[in-house]
């Protein structure tokens, strides 16, 4: 198919479908939640619990986290077929 004709068909189709339908990208729906005060990034409840964003989350203890244990991943990687590619 000639390129010009193909582009016209595709662009025409996009415009016809999008402008006629409800799912227009220009027709930006009202944002359901305001960012920061309310919007939840996956895994975080809200700003007040988003400890990664600010440093006021005090950890008023000194470090007693033992770092010299032998580290082995123990998460969901066990469930992935072929997950352990190279033996250590």
């Amino acid at each position: 198919m000639e390129m010009q004709k193909m582009l016209s068909l595709a662009m025409g189709g996009l415009l016809a479908l999008s402008l006629a339908g409800t799912a227009s990208a220009t027709d930006k729906p009202k944002v359901e939640m305001e960012k920061c005060f309310g919007i939840a990034k996956a895994g975080m409840n809200d700003c007040s619990s988003n400890k990664s964003a600010h440093s006021c989350a005090g950890q008023a203890t000194k470090n007693n986290d033992p770092m010299d244990f032998v580290a082995v991943p123990k998460g969901t990687c066990d469930k992935i077929a072929g997950g352990m590619l190279k033996s250590m």
Partner: peptide
């Protein structure tokens, strides 16, 4: 105490940005 806060905050920043990596390897790792 100061150092622990420093490291704790950076750890939490990483955990916030990389939740899938964290689940894949587990909290301790």
């Amino acid at each position: 105490v100061y150092r622990n806060n420093y490291r704790g905050n950076l750890h939490d920043a990483l955990a916030g940005a990389y939740p899938v990596v964290k689940q894949l390897v587990g909290d301790d790792f």
